[in-house]
Structures are given as C-alpha cells and as structure tokens.
C-alpha cells in the first residue's frame, strides 16, 4: 500500500505530527465530524462576511454612513474572529481526541452570541433614535 498505516503516524509529515502534538488517531468518524463542525463554523463566518459587505454595499439609501460602517465593521470583525477561531477550535478538538482528554469548550460560541446581540442592539438603538 502506498500510504503508511496512519495509526503509527508514519504517513504524516513531521510538521503535521508536531501541530497535532502526537497521540493516536481517533475513530475516523470523529475526525470527519470535527471537520464538518469546522465547516459549519466557516459557513457561519462567511454568512457574517456576506452580511457585513451587504450592509455596506446595499444600505446606502437607508442608513447614514456612520451606522453603515459601524454595522459592517462589527459583522466583518465577527466574521474574522469566528473564521480564524474555527480553525483553532478544530485543531484543539483534534488534539483532545488524539489524547483522549475532554473536548475543549467552544469559546467562539459565546463570542458569536455576544457579537450578534451587539449588532442587534446597535440596530434597536438606531431604530428608536430615528423614531424619536
């Protein structure tokens, strides 16, 4: 067989082995589940990215420039943190599975919740101020 037994780590380059911090390969179904969860976070990040750009690009008639910028930058920064954080989440889960330790908490989840709430709060304040 061309590729070495992945359980021994022989098929992996030294760099990958160092990034994964050794351990033993977990059940491949868990590795695939981790990958899908990572992709779900990436799509969340892409949705925030598209939302941020859409606010800036399509809302010129509705919002003033300051509000538009604020909402757009908040959404894009959230996309940045969720997108970058999703990789480290994936990596930390992979490492935990390889060492059979408890899975780390998803710290990007509260960030997403707080960020979403913050954007909503800015919108509520804007609507109230404009109505007054």
């Amino acid at each position: 067989m061309a590729d070495a037994d992945p359980r021994s780590g022989g098929g992996r380059s030294g760099l990958s082995a160092r990034i994964l911090l050794g351990g033993t390969e977990p059940d491949p179904r868990f590795t695939l589940a981790n990958e899908r969860t990572f992709l779900a976070w990436i799509r969340t990040s892409l949705a925030l990215l598209a939302g941020g750009v859409a606010v800036e690009a399509f809302m010129a008639d509705l919002f003033g420039p300051e509000l538009r910028r604020t909402i757009a930058v908040l959404l894009l920064m959230l996309a940045l943190v969720i997108g970058g954080g999703s990789f480290f989440r994936w990596l930390n889960v992979e490492r935990a599975m390889r060492h059979k330790t408890p899975l780390p908490l998803p710290w990007i989840a509260p960030i997403l919740a707080a960020g979403g709430a913050l954007v909503a709060a800015v919108m509520v304040v804007f609507v109230l101020v404009r109505a007054a």
Partner: peptide, 20 residues
C-alpha cells in the same frame, strides 16, 4: 484510522480571514 486534513482546514480558514 485517518490523518486529519490540516492543510484543507487551515487554507479555508486563512482564506476567510483574509477576505474579512
């Protein structure tokens, strides 16, 4: 047993970060 695909996940996450 399978080797996790670090290159793919890292590349996609990096791409999204650069776009943001």
């Amino acid at each position: 047993a399978m080797v996790p695909d670090i290159a793919s996940t890292a590349a996609v996450a990096a791409s999204v970060v650069v776009l943001a």
